[in-house]
Design a protein around this nucleic acid. Sequence first.
RNA 1: GCCAACGUAGCUCAACGGUAGAGCUCUGGUUUUGUAAACCAGGGGUUAUCGGUUCGAAUCCGAUCGUUGGCUCCA
Length: 638
Amino acid sequence: MAKIVLPDGKVIEAQDGITAGEVALKIGAGLAKAAVAAKIGGKLIDLDTPIAGEVKLAIITLKDKEGMEILRHSSAHVMAEAIKALWPEAKLVYGPTVQDGYYYDIDLDTPIKPDDFARIEGKMAEIAKADKPIKRIEMSRADALKRVEGDRYKTDNVNRALGDVMSFYTHGDGFEDLCRGPHVSSTGKIGAFKIMSVAGAYWHGDAKEKMLQRVYGTAWPTQKDLDSYLNMLEEAKKRDHRILGKQLDLFSFHEEGPGFAFFHPKGMVIWNSVIDFWRKVHRKYGYQEIKTPIMLNESLWHKSGHWDNYKENMYFTTVDEITYAVKPMNCPGGLLVYKSRPHSYKEFPMRVAELGLVHRYEASGVMHGLVRVRQFTQDDAHIFCTPQQIEAEVVGVINLVFEIYKAFGFGDFTIEVSTKPEKHIGSDEIWDIATNALKGALEHKGLQYKINEGDGAFYGPKIDFHIRDCLNRPWQLGTIQLDFSMPQRFELTYTDKDNTEKTPVMLHRAILGSLERFIGILIEHFGGNMPLWLAPEQMRVMTISEKTNEYANGLYKKLFDAGMRVGIDLTDEKVNGKIVRAHADRLPYMVVVGPKEAETNSVNVRIRGLNQSKTLGVDEFVAIVKSKVENQDLGLEL
RNA sequence: GCCAACGUAGCUCAACGGUAGAGCUCUGGUUUUGUAAACCAGGGGUUAUCGGUUCGAAUCCGAUCGUUGGCUCCA
């Protein structure tokens, strides 16, 4: 007798051997129809899995995250079958689900082209329409190895798989694939799907290995869900900083300097607003600021270790037979400043910031708008302190990160700790101490974080702050990196209480990361609708007709003199047209004036995105705007 | 760097072997307007670059440069 305990505590008794699907049917016909799989004590199983004894069972439907993953995973299998049907020589490698979809890595010498997608989808539709049962076959590891003999990829997958029982799934018709499962019960249940793209991907993610073809697909319960997903992607594209940057005339790129951003006047307003705020907060947190040259003698980079560890990413130039390296990082220059005079423990912690322009040669295929460039400005800082001060300093930097991100309305970022990479300098012991100090600070703040094993910089472990762009791709902004190595290489010293010379600890940190990337993310975060304190043009005076030009000009001057970033539209366009244009330029405030306003010395202000306006006195309006800008207020309400 | 795709006017796109077009922007004119586009006219392109095939190339082929989506790498 099977005793099945459901999530709500209800108990169903049945014959041993009853399947999960049959249990669902006992609970209700609706649930049975919606069921895609089941879960026994945390383990996902197929609906046709027999159940015996006392178990806790939950039916998984498409309302569950796991249900959607199963749907997508099954869709990936159907896609694999379709690809095998179209290209019999194709070898299947690995086909997991990803956010909103799945991919399958295929080893096939014929390139799969976007033109082929319709054929693949057509074949998939055929397979789905045939509604073939998807069956699980289990066997021992040894039998599984025999079954995949001669297929290097599947053999590799078996060898990497955990557990003793290997499973294959078959749709009949000779198609089968090694897979942990579970899957939907038949090929007709894979919902609405679409092939999205194809791209190269190295086997095992190793650039030395063969490049496979990675075919991306997406799958949803219904066509309507699929359509709304595709629509969402279209909407997300409109928030893309590369599109908005062009549309709003913020920045541009040119063939003459790939990866080098050109900031236009409006983009510079955002840039300067960000760094004005940045300086204000850094002053509060006890930072000093320096500036060091972008090019320094090659010998410095031998000393710093960059030559050995980072040379392939650096630019070099030779003048008068002396080779200079264009700096990829600011630290060596900062260390020369430190060494320019003796230091006492009394100065510590010494927080030295630098908005440093660095150049890094990046592979051509990785550049991406403002968020991945070859020249960028880091909001760098180096903190020199004693080992005892490390944790408090890291906590201080974390506080600063939170204060700055908050002003931009960034709440949704993730924190990662990266540990010792293969290519590194410094002893294991030093790495342990440094890594533990970083973790300790995060735990002290009660923050969740993820560990990235072996992902640290060559000179020390780090904490990174990541945020996602409009298409949900993660990008790193802030970073806190401990460095016990550089101070030794540069023989940095300070005089301690006991009058002995000691080596200080050094912390590298950036909050915004790179100004370029940060501004790119900022544009996407706001979808181009910058808050008042960042908006290139905060308001535009627009007249009803030229009868009010004189008042409008006077008003413009008054607003300009009050420090507003104001524009004026005196064209003989109708006011409707002026409003449309102002919205296209994402102006926070549209200051409409006609005879009425001229008579009462007032302004009628329409707020971006709202279909209403408000009349108020000029001085009152200026006071509100000033206060919002000073406080980095993200709202526009008057 | 690797795989695939794409480069047409300042912008968004059309033309897909037979004289390169439209809308917006821009310029001039008319209009004098009350909250998401008034009207008319005009200007603007060696179709990324270089080479090839062809009577004829934006269109077909090759190379180079750039961009896009991934992979690897990274702020």
